[in-house]
Nucleic acid binder design. Structure first.
Length: 294
DNA sequence: AAACAGCGCAACCGCCTCGGA
DNA sequence: TTCCGAGGCGGTTGCGCTGTT
């Protein structure tokens, strides 16, 4: 009964990784690159599940991982992004270069969730005193167990194999061409586009169909957005073709435009944050603080 | 000093999506 | 079109550390 395990668990090490295992895994990935996780343990001579190797690499061994305490700016950003995206940890982590989804998830569950709870409880006190509001803030530290607050944009963390470039944007110079499918996360098409962050706000879909789609759908769904093709928009009967699109929160054109800017800056951040992290975090925080934010 | 409780974090689990055959 | 393997994600677990009694 049930699903078959991702790999044979017999004879495999479990639990904490040893320094030797880390060394072997790191050396193997440096030599052969990421991917083929299922075969990796065998080839590398590790008695570990492929998934376990992947997790260890992504959450701990990767060289670009930022260690140490989460800064105040990062914390603020996490709170805001969580308010916006809910428990989409990978998406949130994507906005915080060097941080892993696991780390952010843990941080939220242990620290920020409580803070958010405390804040919201005091806020709801105020609210109850000064008449109720239509929309409640995010309050739960366990959103999965409770309903997401109405303003959370529920997205799918989809991969972005395709990118729709704006017809209005000038064609990118050769060095900013869309990367091939071998690109890593940091080299994602979105990131590469933002080699010219000044072009960022102009990165939008250029057809009326697309605009209609934005008006009526998941304006924050980067994956869908980037994978978007005009033909995706309307079925034969004129309805949206994906169920999850239907349950997504509705975003206004205004919000979309704002988020164009936000995501663009964000992508730029993924590229440039090593040099400029504070600045970009502040910028993001500013955007999220903007009055125009829904 | 020992026992206990609480917390933080690494690791695991199971489900989902995607892409290729 | 369907099936299946691989990879990715969010939720949960459990171990080890630290603070308190």
């Amino acid at each position: 009964m049930g699903r078959s395990p991702c790999c044979s668990k017999e004879g495999l090490n479990r639990g904490a990784w040893t320094a030797l295992e880390d060394k072997i895994l790191t050396a193997y990935i440096k030599a052969h690159g990421e991917g083929k996780w299922r075969n990796l343990p065998k080839r590398a001579g590790l008695k570990r599940c492929g998934k376990s190797c992947r997790l260890r690499w992504l959450n701990y061994l990767r060289p670009d991982i930022k260690r140490g305490n989460i800064s105040h700016e990062e914390e603020e950003l996490i709170i805001r992004l969580h308010k916006l995206l809910g428990n989409r940890w990978s998406l949130i982590a994507g906005r915080l270069p060097g941080r892993t989804d696991n780390e952010i998830k843990n941080y939220w569950n242990t620290t920020l969730g409580k803070k958010a709870n405390a804040q919201s409880s005091s806020q709801s006190k105020q609210n109850s005193q000064s008449k109720s509001r239509a929309i409640e803030p995010i309050t739960s530290t366990q959103p999965s167990k409770s309903t997401q607050a109405t303003q959370v944009i529920r997205t799918k963390a989809t991969r972005c194999p395709k990118v729709l470039l704006s017809m209005q944007s000038p064609p990118p110079p050769p060095e900013t061409e869309i990367h091939s499918s071998t690109a890593t996360e940091d080299d994602s098409p979105q990131a590469s586009l933002l080699n010219h962050p000044q072009d960022g706000p102009n990165f939008h879909c250029g057809t009326e169909e697309v605009r209609a789609y934005h008006n009526d759908s998941d304006f924050l769904n980067f994956g869908r957005w980037n994978a978007f093709q005009p033909s995706d928009v309307i079925d034969g009967d004129g309805s949206m073709d994906n169920d999850y699109d239907k349950i997504l929160a509705r975003g206004s054109e205004r919000s979309l435009a704002l988020f164009d800017d936000l995501t663009s800056k964000d992508w730029a951040m993924n590229r440039c944050l090593e040099d400029n992290s504070t600045l970009d975090l502040e910028y993001l925080a500013h955007l999220l603080d903007s009055e125009e934010w829904p």
